[in-house]
Simulated assay, not measured.
Amino acid sequence: MTAAEDPAWRAAGEQRYLADMVRAGSRTRAGQEKAEEDYRTLLPQGVATPDNTLLVLQADGEPIGNGWFRRGHLPEVTYGYSLVVDPEFRGRGHGRSAVAIGEQVTWEVGDRVVMFDVSGGNEVAMSLYTAVGYRVVEESRSRDLAAGVDG
């Protein structure tokens, strides 16, 4: 990814991240500040932030999605903060190819394990990762109590 591509990617990523948090029940729409702060904190130098790899995924020379990987999440672990295949390109094997690219990035930076962030309710991603052999490492549950607590 180039520095010129970063602002649009970041804005779309923040919106997707917020939507994931809302869907998973961990935030409301007011969580926009959290999404912006997390991106500022994790990528203070944008595409030039050390130990991060930001990718534009392409098929036949056309952008079809993107990925964000951060080395050093844990010892020998690269963390995939996002891996996105745009909806109009899904169902053609691009998701599997994108996962393989993430694995290649992990290997090239010297790590042995790749972990992907998948928010609750993202059944498409969960299904993909399960199909290619990933396992659930951590899971959280939430319940919205805004309507009150019943007995």
Rank of each mutant, 00 (worst) to 15 (best):
R90T: 10
R112H: 10
R143G: 01
A48Q: 12
P50V: 04
T28S: 14
V113Y: 08
V113F: 10
R40N: 11
D60C: 00
S127I: 02
S127C: 04
G91W: 03
R141V: 08
A48I: 02
V137H: 14
E103H: 07
P87V: 11
Q45K: 08
E76C: 10
E108Y: 01
V99E: 06
L42T: 07
A19E: 15
W107L: 11
H94C: 08
A100I: 04
F116W: 14
D6Y: 12
Y79S: 09
D38T: 07
P75C: 06
G25V: 04
V114N: 13
A19V: 05
P75M: 09
Q15H: 06
E62S: 08
A131R: 14
Y81L: 11
V114T: 14
S127T: 15
E76Y: 12
E123K: 00
E36P: 01
G121W: 01
A35Q: 09
L42H: 13
H94K: 08
L18D: 07
L18Q: 05
Y129R: 01
R112N: 06
D144V: 07
G110S: 06
G93K: 12
S140C: 04
R92P: 02
Q15S: 14
Y134F: 14
T78H: 05
Q45I: 01
R23P: 02
P63C: 09
R16T: 14
V114W: 05
D117W: 01
V149D: 03
G67C: 06
M115K: 13
E33C: 03
L128D: 06
L55F: 02
L54P: 03
G31K: 08
Q45C: 03
A12F: 03
G61W: 00
L55P: 02
E108W: 00
T2C: 07
E5D: 13
R90S: 10
P87H: 12
V113L: 12
G133N: 05
A30N: 11
T78I: 03
S142I: 06
R71H: 05
R10K: 15
G80E: 07
I101D: 04
I101Q: 10
W107R: 14
G25D: 07
V47Y: 00
M1N: 05
R141F: 07
R23E: 07
E76D: 13
T106I: 01
N122Y: 00
E88Y: 00
D144H: 11
N122T: 10
G133T: 09
R71K: 15
E76R: 13
L57F: 15
D144Q: 07
A24L: 04
G61D: 05
G67F: 05
R16H: 11
M1S: 13
L55G: 06
A8D: 06
Y17N: 07
D144T: 08
F69A: 10
V136S: 03
G121N: 10
T41E: 14
E103N: 02
R70I: 09
V85F: 08
V47R: 11
M21W: 04
E76I: 03
R141K: 09
L43I: 08
S140P: 02
E62P: 00
G91C: 10
S97Y: 00
E103A: 07
V137C: 06
D51G: 03
A125Q: 07
S127V: 06
A59R: 13
M21E: 07
M21C: 13
A8F: 00
G102P: 05
M115F: 01
R29H: 04
V105M: 11
